[in-house]
Nucleic acid binder design. Structure first.
Lengths: 135, 135
DNA sequence: TTTTCACTTTAGAATAATTATAAACTAAAA
DNA sequence: TTTTAGTTTATAATTATTCTAAAGTGAAAA
């Protein structure tokens, strides 16, 4: 994803393309593959990668802003860490608690034949499948 | 579940039936229906119900000991709260983020037709389905 | 341009959930 | 009984996250 597209992406979701947001967006979206991270891991990676330090609070703000705009997906797993995922399409996850690793599963690789009706007055927002792994 | 059974349950899993453990176990397991709770909510309920105060750390210890013994199931949902579930059978959950409510879904009410193979060297421990609700 | 102002960033404080510590206590084996 | 390993407890520490309020900054308006 090019810089011009990063700017478009930000502007189209009413996010001012500040220096920090552009830097974080480039880091997250200029890649081929899906990227899973926690705020803490992203912070460490940004410290390594860039010269200018971005405040941790800004990373929290930015990641949540990107999530609200639909550019990131939030995934919560055992062990009280919140992972974010640059893959925002409908998909599922393997979770390997040995390595705390999250692996994408394409939505087409999981077929659910039967699910119950939502309780009265409620609707189904989405269905998330977690396949927990062991050795 | 009778007191004698509570004692058996604890002894059979090498948990000394201390005053605190018996009290918590009675509160959790002497009921007809599945019970979902967080450590914090359990603590509040125990304060209301009983005369003797049990330290919060003991409730954490006890709940985790019961979980390790397979008497409780741990369920993690959006919003950084860890729920425990007295239903330890294989089952799934509705999660209503409006009310932070967790509702059991019988394993038979969800039929998965197709799941991917586990990554090499890994095995599938279990499959958890979350159906997120909206209004 | 320059000015203005709402939006952002920032460091540090505050909060919330959980775990660690170490001393006092206790169930049950010897 | 006495002993001992397991347990409880209050409190401190840790971890992840959010709040606060002051300083900074895009971008619209003058």
């Amino acid at each position: 994803m090019k810089k011009i597209d990063i700017l478009k992406k930000l502007r189209s979701s009413s996010l001012r393309p500040t220096k920090q947001r552009v830097e974080i967006a480039k880091f997250l979206f200029e890649r081929e593959k899906t990227f899973h991270f926690t705020v803490e891991s992203l912070n460490k990676l940004l410290i390594k990668k860039s010269t200018s330090k971005i405040a941790l609070a800004t990373i929290y703000n930015t990641v949540h802003a990107f999530k609200a705009a639909g550019h990131l997906n939030e995934v919560e797993v055992r062990g009280n860490k919140t992972y974010f995922d640059t893959n925002v399409s409908n998909h599922h996850h393997f979770y390997d608690s040995e390595t705390s690793e999250l692996i994408d599963i394409d939505a087409n690789d999981v077929v659910i034949q039967k699910i119950p009706k939502a309780p009265n007055g409620k609707k189904i927002k989405n269905v998330e499948v977690f396949i927990n792994l062991k050795n």
